[in-house]
């Protein structure tokens, strides 16, 4: 209700200088994250802090190949993040499936399912490359062009179509109830004994 446009530069500066990373390391790039936090590369200088809960995180690092199973979790976590959220895709696998180009269980184009703001090439980019990526995304935020989340919200049907195409309709409920039939079966068996 209040018009914040006047304070946009300050807020963008704050968003730029205090990005919290969702501690959700997919694929082989997860091990690249700690060096960024330790004394040599220290991302905390830029106010970036790993944070386990998506509800309060902004930056979502997709580090490495994405299997359908992980993609389901990524989509759920992504949707839980509050709005100005940015996705940083590391390595070549999220771009085109990389070395798993013909595998049944690796996603070929991550961009079809969730919007990617900055993609960093390299089959697991070195910390310096990641730092460049982060520099790039901070500039995008500065200029207000990091609009991955706006793209997701506007053409949500496109993304939803792709997701349902891959996982089938109502996949959330199905995945949640995946174990229940087997557990019920075991319960019945145990009662019979």
């Amino acid at each position: 209700m209040v018009d914040w446009r006047l304070y946009e530069p300050l807020i963008n500066f704050a968003r730029k200088r205090s990005m919290w990373i969702v501690a959700f390391c997919t694929g082989c790039g997860g091990i690249e994250m700690p060096p960024l936090m330790t004394s040599r590369y220290d991302l905390e200088r830029f106010g970036m802090m790993p944070n386990p809960a998506p509800r309060m995180a902004d930056l979502f690092l997709i580090t490495g190949y994405v299997t359908p199973k992980t993609l389901k979790r990524i989509i759920i976590t992504y949707e839980m993040q509050p709005d100005p959220k940015y996705v940083l895709a590391h390595g070549s696998c999220p771009l085109n499936g990389g070395i798993y180009w013909d595998a049944y269980n690796a996603i070929k184009h991550l961009d079809k399912y969730i919007p990617v703001d900055v993609a960093i090439a390299g089959c697991m980019p070195r910390p310096e490359a990641v730092m460049d990526g982060i520099k790039k995304i901070m500039d995008l935020i500065e200029t207000g062009k990091a609009d991955g989340w706006k793209r997701y919200k506007e053409n949500y049907e496109y993304y939803k179509k792709n997701q349902d195409e891959l996982f089938g309709e109502g996949w959330r409920e199905k995945t949640a109830r995946r174990w229940i039939p087997w557990l019920m079966g075991r319960e019945k068996k145990r009662e019979e004994e």
Partner: peptide, 25 residues
């Protein structure tokens, strides 16, 4: 930890960022 560490006004930045979030649940 022999790290540089964030600027001293970092918590203020964090709070401004959090308060200025566009969608809340």
């Amino acid at each position: 930890h022999r790290r540089v560490g964030p600027p001293i006004y970092q918590p203020i930045l964090d709070t401004i960022k959090l308060l200025s979030k566009k969608s809340n649940i």
